[in-house]
């Protein structure tokens, strides 16, 4: 067991980070908004952590102090959230395809900026980001509680007034508006929550990966995180969690396929949308496997 954990520690943490990124795409989808901005906020959060820990925060000794990591997480989440409000208010007036296009543009603009600015280290990026833990498994102390916290919050959210408003907007925005729900407010809220989560994950991932550069926030990454949700299932928060875990592990499982594994990944996207449009975790599946008492809450 110990040998297994130390061999696959890096992969396990990556899988859980993938789940969190899937949830960050899932949050705006709760109001029916397809946002591809997750890699942008993820990259932003990572740069915040990388710059703070390599240039600003003083510390002694070998390990980066955990309280400072928490401070970074809070700052990264705040900055992402504020930017998301500024971005979301004009952009979320638009519907459907326009939002997807606008968020693609946002990710590309951030990528070009980070390639050219001095503070982000240009094309080279930022190196030697200090480590708070001795090995990859240590990150589980941060990632597991975060995943549980976010999962429970989203699960509970679905039963509150806000969650019901999200659902109403997803089903029919005009009808929801007619019922006295302010669609723009709730759409911006879901977008901002997703952005904060992506920023937080970025701050953790910057330490975890040790280096941070413009390749973290690309269009490819947008597709990958979207796939987490669509393959896993976009109707329950369990979907993106499963999707993130499975699809992050998939390249390792398919290592035998070599370069062909991305072809397989693409095929999975095409076939998945055609044959399993609801993803792996569907509402029917939940109904069959989860006792009625808990089910009402999922």
């Amino acid at each position: 067991m110990a040998a297994f954990l130390s061999t696959y520690g890096y992969l396990i943490v990556s899988m859980l980070l993938g789940s969190l990124l899937g949830l960050s795409v899932y949050l705006p989808l709760m109001t029916g908004q397809l946002s591809l901005a997750t890699p942008g906020f993820y990259a932003l959060g990572g740069y915040v952590a990388a710059v703070l820990s390599t240039k600003i925060i003083p510390f002694e000794g070998m390990w980066f102090p955990l309280p400072w990591l928490l401070v970074e997480i809070v700052i990264a989440g705040l900055i992402s959230g504020i930017l998301a409000v500024i971005l979301g208010i004009p952009v979320l007036r638009l519907r459907g395809i326009y939002l997807a296009i606008a968020t693609i543009a946002f990710v590309e603009i951030l990528r070009v900026l980070s390639l050219n600015l001095e503070i982000t280290g240009g094309a080279v990026g930022i190196f030697a980001i200090p480590q708070p833990f001795g090995n990859a498994l240590g990150y589980l102390w941060i990632v597991v509680p975060l995943l549980i916290l976010v999962g429970v919050l989203i699960w509970r959210l679905e039963n509150t007034k806000v969650g019901r408003a999200f659902n109403a907007i997803r089903e029919d925005e005009l009808a929801a508006n007619a019922m006295g729900i302010n669609p723009t407010y709730y759409k911006v809220l879901s977008f901002v929550l997703g952005a904060i989560l992506a920023g937080i994950v970025g701050a953790i991932a910057a330490h975890f990966l040790n280096t941070w550069n413009a390749r973290q926030g690309t269009f490819d990454a947008s597709i990958t995180y979207l796939a987490f949700v669509l393959i896993g299932g976009s109707r329950s928060f369990l979907g993106p969690i499963l999707g993130g875990i499975l699809l992050t592990a998939l390249p390792e499982v398919l290592r035998g396929l070599g370069d062909a594994r991305l072809i397989f990944f693409g095929l999975l996207l095409v076939l998945g949308t055609i044959f399993y449009p609801q993803g792996l975790i569907t509402p029917e599946l939940l109904r069959r496997w989860i006792p009625a008492k808990l089910r009402a809450k999922i």
Binding site: L262, F265, G266, L267, L268, V270, T273
Partner: peptide, 16 residues
């Protein structure tokens, strides 16, 4: 939006 995703998948297949 699903055809957007499926065309993204097709792009990944062609490029790779």
């Amino acid at each position: 939006l699903l055809s957007l995703v499926s065309s993204l998948g097709a792009a990944v297949v062609i490029v790779n």
